[in-house]
Design a protein around this nucleic acid. Structure first.
Lengths: 101, 101
DNA sequence: CGAGATAGTAACCGAACGGTGACATATTGT
DNA sequence: ACAATATGTCACCGTTCGGTTACTATCTCG
């Protein structure tokens, strides 16, 4: 996926996370960060630095591409995980089942 | 170029900058940042946030690719710039003409 | 040699970040 | 209905970041 903004980055991370069947806590722990930070990134909040990076690359006309290494779900060898239909649906809906009022 | 560390990122930015015949001040101004920050990034100093981003993407097995949009030097239309042989040499040497002692 | 340009470095400082912990909301399963 | 899980949000706070402003070193050109 071509990344242009912090929102792009957040969307891609979230999509990949749900596809892998991970919750925010698990990923935060894996990455050595906090859930708060992950929430902000997934929402596209441009932290100071990432904003500067994106602007710099733009100034240099450099494009950023992110790619999930293995097609759909490739949990680290040894952890089958079996993300069933639910996680796939989640990744499609990003969680719009909220209230619908 | 496949980006794996902050050092990769810095090297790529610096290479692209010199290829375009820009000095740190010009790029910093273009990107809306400071020369200090640019120096640190080019040296591969992983700011807090970029480190987290890289770790997160790694945790999700996402790969990052950077690509200079136009082959060699494509200054924004209207600014020919004409980077002569010198900048090309610079990009090859990264500035090892220092002292050589 | 001297002037100019570019890059690396340092100290200072206000602002923003990132972590922690708690709470609210929403969805799922029993 | 209830508990459990997951996400979003908030306040607090220590740390670090990023900008500014010097100063130095190196290289180039006249």
């Amino acid at each position: 996926m071509r990344i242009r903004t912090a929102t792009d980055l957040g969307a891609f991370i979230r999509e990949r996370r749900t596809t892998l069947g991970l919750d925010q806590i698990s990923l935060a722990k894996k990455a050595g960060t906090s859930r708060k930070w992950l929430v902000e990134v997934e929402q596209g909040k441009p932290g100071a630095e990432i904003g500067l990076i994106l602007r710099t690359l733009k100034s240099l006309e450099i494009s950023i591409d992110l790619e999930a290494d293995s097609s759909v779900a490739t949990p680290p060898p040894g952890k089958p995980k079996a993300p069933d239909i639910n996680s796939v649906l989640d990744s499609l809906k990003t969680r719009p089942l909220k209230k619908q009022i």
